[in-house]
């Protein structure tokens, strides 16, 4: 089944693999706009421990484009802002083949 559309003033955060195991969910809808630099702290507050166990070893995409979470964090208020309707995804280390 496809991910349902985010309600107004929210964005979709997708979880895969280790992120799904930790949250026990496939996705969350979070309030938008949200500076990308605040994303990890927001998710950590919702799922304590996820930062060290999952987020720090994962990559991040916004609307299918990779973004550098550390770089964004350093930019503070000057960085990318996640908009309502955006699709953000946590990408744990891959293991295909």
């Amino acid at each position: 089944m496809a991910t349902p559309k985010a309600p107004a003033d929210h964005f979709t955060l997708l979880y895969f693999a280790a992120a799904t195991s930790f949250t026990r969910k496939q996705h969350d809808f979070l309030p938008a706009p949200m500076p990308l630099s605040q994303l990890y702290d927001t998710v950590e507050a919702k799922y304590p421990g996820i930062k060290a166990k999952v987020l720090e070893s994962s990559a991040l995409t916004v609307n299918l484009e990779y973004v550098d979470a550390e770089e964004e964090g350093a930019k503070g208020g000057q960085g990318t802002v996640i908009q309502s309707g955006d699709e953000v995804a946590i990408i744990p280390p891959v293991s295909s083949g």
């Binding site: 895969f16 693999a17 990408i91 744990p92 891959v94 293991s95 295909s96 083949g97």
Partner: peptide
Amino acid sequence: KERVEIWK
């Protein structure tokens, strides 16, 4: 194996 977003 290095890049594609698939998890086993």
